[in-house]
């Protein structure tokens, strides 16, 4: 089946979840991705650690919208930074590049 179709089905199923569950899955996806990136960084001898912030602690069952958005933002920024380090390590400079 076309990957896009599968993805659409998958997201439709996600839409039917309760708000708490949607939050939970979203955060877990962030965490999974971060954990994988972290492991890859280790394998690539990238020693710069993962950026974190205590706002992630505030996320939990029944947390407020504010807490959830803040936690999501922290995860996203942390993901970005890990990805940035990963890409830097996997890249070679050329003219105009980094």
């Amino acid at each position: 089946m076309d990957k896009q179709v599968l993805f659409d089905r998958y997201i439709n199923a996600y839409k039917k979840l309760s708000l708490d569950k949607k939050r939970e899955y979203l955060i877990e996806e962030y965490k999974r991705t971060l954990a994988y990136l972290e492991k890859l960084k280790k394998d690539l001898d990238i020693h710069e650690g993962m950026l974190l912030n205590r706002e992630i602690i505030d996320f939990g069952q029944g947390c407020s919208d504010d807490d959830f958005v803040e936690a999501s933002y922290v995860y996203l920024k942390s993901l970005q930074e890990s990805l940035g380090l990963f890409l830097e390590k996997l890249s070679v400079a050329n003219e105009g590049g980094i």
Binding site: L44, E48, E81, G84, E88, L90, V92, N94, G97, I98
Partner: peptide, 21 residues
Amino acid sequence: QSAFHRVTSEGKTIVVKPFVK
């Protein structure tokens, strides 16, 4: 100080050099 910003800045071009162990 952001690595992500460095690699995604406008006008920057990076060449991926994968060397996953």
